[in-house]
């Protein structure tokens, strides 16, 4: 592992979907939000983020629309779909069970 702060395998989709809960965001916004909310404990590289976004889009968990910014740049905004919200709910439940389980193991180990 090059960087311990790299996103745990399998949780990136969860993070992206959660960060879109409050409304539409562009890629940089999502990365920024994850970084801020995790107090810089979790870093999402662009090389992982964008393919994940496109994958989620292909699966119809999120949808995208293009907007033209003030400086005439095209910007792509993502938002959750109904299917995405449902998946998010399942993923959050799974994550909670997982965290509780890991915590239980840790406690037992006295860590």
């Amino acid at each position: 592992m090059a960087d311990s702060r790299e996103v745990l395998h399998g949780t990136l989709d969860l993070l992206i979907l959660s960060s879109l809960q409050s409304g539409a965001l562009h890629g940089w916004g999502i990365a920024h939000l994850i970084r801020n909310r995790s107090s810089e404990a979790v870093l999402v590289t662009t090389g992982a983020l964008y393919p994940a976004l496109h994958r989620l889009e292909a699966r119809r968990h999120i949808k995208a629309r293009w907007q033209t910014s003030e400086s005439n740049r095209r910007a792509k905004f993502y938002e959750l779909t109904a299917a995405g919200r449902k998946v998010l709910g399942e993923e959050v439940a799974w994550w909670n069970r997982f965290v509780a389980g890991v915590a239980g193991v840790m406690t037992a180990a006295g860590g």
Partner: peptide, 17 residues
Amino acid sequence: RDFADELQDHLARDIEF
């Protein structure tokens, strides 16, 4: 072209930030 635009946008925002 969409890939390029999206990444360009990301880059611009990151630099601004």
